[in-house]
């Protein structure tokens, strides 16, 4: 019985299209994996040719990936990749760059200060807030435990 306002959201489930879990997961795996593989090539490149250490090579690698991602957003390619890959292009650091660039670009019409600069972190801000808060809390706890014992 579909004509039941109280239980509509339950009863209507039979009419919902199936989400292609396997296909979506494969696409995310493939694209995400390839982005990381490309990152590994970059890292190896920076270690061999610019004498970065294994620990410090992460910095130029991430910066390069971010540069490429922001350009892809600018040229209108990253959104197409994102629609195809889902989490495969959201989870890598390139997705972080895309949230920053796309939000800034979208609000360009409202000006450089009130549009671009104000909206730069409108989507990406949440990542930094949660990252900093969780790292600070965990850091304090860990330091407290280390000092106590």
């Amino acid at each position: 019985m579909l004509n039941d306002p109280k239980n509509y959201s339950e009863n209507v489930k039979a009419f919902q299209p199936r989400i292609p879990y396997v296909k979506n997961s494969l696409k995310a795996f493939l694209v995400g994996g390839l982005i990381c593989l490309f990152g590994q090539f970059l890292e190896t490149f920076y270690i061999h040719f610019f004498h970065f250490t294994k620990q410090s090579a992460g910095n130029p690698t991430v910066a390069t990936l971010i540069l490429i991602a922001t350009l892809m957003t600018g040229f209108g390619i990253y959104d197409k990749l994102a629609r195809f890959a889902g989490a495969g292009s959201i989870v890598p650091v390139t997705g972080f760059a895309n949230t920053i660039t796309s939000a800034a670009l979208e609000h360009k019409s409202e000006g450089i200060v009130l549009g671009i600069a104000t909206n730069l972190f409108s989507l990406a801000g949440a990542v930094i807030v949660f990252g900093v808060v969780s790292a600070a809390v965990l850091g304090i706890i860990r330091l407290f435990i280390e000092k106590a014992f």
């Binding site: 919902q16 299209p17 199936r18 989400i19 292609p20 957003t73 600018g74 209108g76 990253y78 959104d79 197409k80 990749l81 994102a82 629609r83 889902g86 989490a87 292009s89 959201i90 895309n98 949230t99 660039t101 796309s102 939000a103 670009l105 979208e106 609000h107 989507l123």
Partner: peptide
Amino acid sequence: ERQFRYPTEYGGPSNPT
């Protein structure tokens, strides 16, 4: 898209519904 979902260049994940 800009008002209800995401920036147009963001490319939010697509959903069959």
